[in-house]
Design a protein around this nucleic acid. Structure first.
Lengths: 220, 220
DNA sequence: CCTACCGATCGGTAGG
DNA sequence: CCTACCGATCGGTAGG
């Protein structure tokens, strides 16, 4: 066992989830899964980009599936954390909390476009165990928005016909962003966030959203 | 050359695009691509489900790629035709045309759920030539909705801040339906169509949503 | 339309 | 962490 092996081994033992090599592999996996898709990305190519041999990947992950599960669960976990933080920091008015949550979702794509893209396209290739974990997290995400909307309806500031379908519609707008948004393209992500938050406030029938005011500042 | 070969050959020659066998292969391909994804679906399995050997598939399609291109282009072509027909049949008021177009999009999933699902997940695996054709058709679809919305804005019955992003949002709501709608599930597709058309009219700031129309479909 | 087959590539393992 | 390797599977072709 040479010095390098000893270093790597002790690192893995002390903090198995965040060894430098493991993180490097995950980072490359995210990029490859994004560019080519899970199935088209090979462990050999992933190894090559990480600067090791294919067999060495299995010192860090038991299978390609574990890699995918790790990517997909961390993606949605990061998203949920960001949205919760934004909603908590916002004023307690449901429209403000909804606006903050949507803006956080849209701006999530600034730092994590590849993760967002993978999340909406590679779920099918996940094995049953990983799928169960991701679906549980998705349910958490749905619940955050359902709660805000239910609060708004109860307070009489939102008017929603069908909360379930409405939440699906709102999350669909956000989830599809990776399919049309391109960094450096014509639309800035902050501009997109502004427009989409406005659309969402209209969707929930917010009686006092910025975009629902006419030129005289009265509700439409 | 026996009778069967002669029949198949003459059929292909007289109407290459719609021979019975070719249609059967396409139908099975749609199901397999939907269930497993393009990459995970093998030509052997497709052949087996069609009742022929893998090599025989190549008498009908030059490659697996051609199969995917055919599926994806026909999917969006069917969708466009349905939406155009619905919008044309509707009254000329932009809100009515938009409502009809959205309802047609949602109800498209009644007959073509697998096609809709494939369209939103398998585009990545299409080769450059097929991708170019599909993107051209997508642009047509966008243009239909952009036109209706622009008409509504010009007529003063819609109020839209950013037409491009708004169209992307509206199409996103429809495009994600295969990710959460399940036939026989809690929500009926006609109910979904009703709710979503309502949301979309809110999104465009329609001054005359369903509840505010008089008998002639004009704003009150 | 079938039988027979090819070269390429894949995820993963043995052993050191 | 590497070398060497395996069994499986893939899309596609030759030839009839």
């Amino acid at each position: 066992m040479d010095m390098r092996d000893r270093f790597l081994t002790s690192t893995e033992r002390s903090d198995a989830g965040t060894s430098l090599r493991r993180v490097a592999i995950l980072k490359n996996a995210i990029r490859l899964f994004h560019e080519k898709g899970y199935r088209a990305a090979s462990m050999r190519e992933l190894a090559h980009e990480t600067g090791i041999e294919a067999a060495s990947l299995y010192n860090h992950f038991v299978s390609k599936q574990e890699l995918l599960a790790e990517v997909l669960t961390s993606a949605i976990q990061i998203l949920i954390d960001g949205i919760r933080a934004a909603a908590s920091a916002a004023e307690s008015h449901p429209a403000q909390r909804l606006r903050a949550a949507i803006a956080a979702y849209v701006l999530f794509h600034e730092e994590h476009l590849a993760l967002a893209s993978i999340s909406s396209t590679e779920l099918r290739d996940l094995d049953p165990d990983g799928l169960r974990r991701v679906l549980a997290l998705r349910h958490e995400l749905d619940a955050i928005f359902k709660q805000i909307i239910a609060d708004g309806v109860r307070a009489g500031v939102f008017a929603v016909e069908n909360t379930g379908i409405t939440v699906m519609a709102i999350l669909s707008i956000c989830a599809r962003i990776p399919s049309w948004y391109r960094p450096g393209g014509p639309q800035d992500l902050h501009e997109i966030a502004e427009v989409i938050t406005g659309l969402v406030l209209r969707i929930v029938g917010a009686r006092n959203g910025r975009l629902n005011l006419n030129r005289k500042g009265k509700p439409i």
